[in-house]
Design a protein around this nucleic acid. Sequence first.
DNA 1: CTCGGACCTCAAGTCGGCTTGAGGTCAAGG
DNA 2: CCTTGACCTCAAGCCGACTTGAGGTCCGAG
Lengths: 155, 155
Amino acid sequence: MDGLSIGEVAARSGMAPSALRYYEAQGLVTATRTAGGARRFPRSVLRRLAFVRAAQNVGLSLPEIRAALDTLPEGRAPSARDWARLSRGWRDRLDEQIAALEQLRDGLSSCIGCGCLSLKTCALSNPGDVAAGQGAGARWLSPLLRRVPPGSNAG
Amino acid sequence: MDGLSIGEVAARSGMAPSALRYYEAQGLVTATRTAGGARRFPRSVLRRLAFVRAAQNVGLSLPEIRAALDTLPEGRAPSARDWARLSRGWRDRLDEQIAALEQLRDGLSSCIGCGCLSLKTCALSNPGDVAAGQGAGARWLSPLLRRVPPGSNAG
DNA sequence: CTCGGACCTCAAGTCGGCTTGAGGTCAAGG
DNA sequence: CCTTGACCTCAAGCCGACTTGAGGTCCGAG
């Protein structure tokens, strides 16, 4: 009655226990501890995790997601309205992403015909001002479509 | 007359010398060497690099790009037709990516209203069968829109 | 009392696509 | 002759989001 074990949360959310521990360390979720030191999550963690997943799908980083979650009310349980507020900005973000991809696709149509692929002028090589890339790390447009095994969302 | 130095290629392509060395190591481009050991790139390298950039923007990994480049004719210089062939599949890929994002956005519209965000049923938490994620490494939908400084494409 | 299973912590590894740094070579110019 | 600058190689670092592994604790059942 005092909460869900990490195993239960993992089973119900489809996330790995290690990911849940990581999220706790990052301040995305909180948990109390049993006498023995085991985590006990409030049931509300499932909704938070759903939000985290959705936000990731929209392209937010964990720090960004954390910042969003931090705006939730402290005293009471967050309402549907609260969640809706948080995700309102996503629509614009998605619209921008879609627009960028469409631009790329349309650039493709006009570029492929001529086979130009000029580094300076081709819309494909230089889609807008976007994705110029700086600093270290992987940066590609979208791993969305890389084939992945059907996910272990059992339970 | 025998080719471009790595510095010239870097200046003209907007890519860092280190990136060009890396691409050579990965077999994306080739270079001969001067007596002193410095790389000399054929002029055609610029077009190859434009292709690499474009392919990355469409979301291909370097091994995938390499595989595509490996289908170019060996003897003669690749024609506009060759380049067009290589990038033909991109359109579908982009269409799929756009569709995935639109699905996500439309899921957003229907989900946000009710604030449901149920882990099991919400389209936002579970956009199609896509992006389930497995293995290590970063995996987000699109860093496309993260703000980046205006890129050092001088020259 | 021992076993198994679920849990714990902390450090290190993974992936992609590079960058950065240490240490060395080569060619031209003062 | 010495410097400057562009180049070289090779190893290690970086980012984000986790996973993996080693080594330990806790608890109930047999």
